[in-house]
């Protein structure tokens, strides 16, 4: 039970998927090609009916001026590319929504990966007992549901009675009038970043730790004999050896941070009253469900999906490095 290796290296997606895979009787199984597809059928059917078909409908909706009237009547109302023209020529997209989405994702991914890597390095230097204790704490951060965590951060930064306001007022950094963190884009997203990094770094930490534990000790020792200090060892030995692990955690974090929803939507103003803080997901949702402009909302959703698709292709290339896609 006290085995120090907490993560089986084989459980890492990059190394497991990147490895050639010869099951012992692989060739003989090719005679029955029906069986794998029968086994896959339920899974593929669910994914097809509930992910791919609705995605097709969103694309179809995005070519319509689809409002409440159409919801009731069920009649389509095509308007060609109007939604996309309106969307792409809207300064609001370029000035507010895209920067909110992209700059936030870059900062949050950077914070998540850097903190997660530091924590992984810290965990590696600990003995088994301390490692278990600290991982326990890290996982508590991960286990906090997004909705709950968001309300805790809102409460901590509350304008009137929040902990931060009281602390800052006690040291004289904020006057008795207080400070509203939620109206300004920058401070709003600083809180979202704090929330997202808190929720996201545990995944990076345990995954990078799993990668670190696969690095042969001789490699590090050889570098030490050559006189490399800790900084050089990290950049010249650790990073190149487990580059695929870093690729996977970075890309997955990017995908998640692009589609952040509840952590923005549930914040004060994020639900519609303060458009300055919208990201693509929230904008699409508000357009569709608050303003009943389903066509435009769908066009925004398609834009988000396309951006994620590009990142996903990078992800697939990182996971299936050597194996060809047949």
């Amino acid at each position: 039970m006290s085995e120090p290796v907490l993560v089986r290296p084989a459980a890492d997606p990059a190394s497991a998927a990147g490895r050639p895979l010869p099951p012992p009787r692989a060739r003989r199984r090719r005679r029955v090609p029906l069986r794998p597809w029968l086994l896959l059928a339920p899974g593929l059917a669910v994914i097809g009916v509930l992910l791919l078909y609705p995605l097709g409908r969103v694309v179809w909706l995005s070519f319509q001026d689809y409002g409440l009237r159409n919801v009731v009547s069920g009649e389509p109302n095509y308007n060609g590319l109007d939604n996309y023209v309106a969307l792409l020529t809207d300064p609001f997209l370029w000035r507010v929504v895209l920067p909110n989405t992209i700059v936030f994702a870059v900062v949050a991914v950077g914070g998540t990966v850097v903190l997660g890597t530091l924590v992984a390095l810290l965990l590696r230097s600990l003995g088994p007992w301390w490692r278990t204790v600290v991982i326990g704490c890290v996982l508590v951060a991960w286990a906090m549901p997004a909705v709950t965590g968001t309300y805790v951060w809102i409460w901590i930064f509350d304008v009137d009675r929040g902990l931060v306001r009281q602390l800052l007022q006690a040291v004289g950094l904020v006057g008795p009038e207080g400070f509203n963190w939620f109206t300004e884009r920058l401070s709003f997203y600083a809180i979202v970043t704090l929330n997202i990094v808190h929720h996201g770094f545990p995944f990076v930490a345990v995954t990078v730790l799993a990668g670190l534990l696969t690095i042969p000790r001789e490699l590090t020792e050889a570098a030490m004999l050559d006189g490399a200090n800790a900084w050089q060892r990290f950049w010249r030995v650790t990073v190149p050896t487990i580059r695929p692990v870093f690729a996977v955690v970075t890309i997955l974090s990017t995908i998640w941070d692009f589609k952040v929803f509840a952590q923005v939507y549930l914040m004060p103003g994020g639900g519609g009253t303060n458009p300055e803080v919208f990201n693509l997901g929230v904008w699409s949702y508000v357009r569709s469900f608050a303003q009943q402009s389903y066509g435009l909302g769908s066009a925004v959703a398609v834009l988000l999906t396309l951006m994620l698709l590009v990142i996903t292709i990078g992800y697939l290339r990182a996971v299936f490095r050597d194996e060809e896609l047949r």
């Binding site: 992910l51 995605l55 409908r57 969103v58 909706l61 692009f258 589609k259 699409s284 999906t305 996903t312």
Partner: peptide, 12 residues
């Protein structure tokens, strides 16, 4: 498919 944004399919 694991990258799917929920917001993209919530209307359909």
């Amino acid at each position: 498919c694991s990258m799917f944004p929920g917001v993209a399919i919530v209307t359909p």
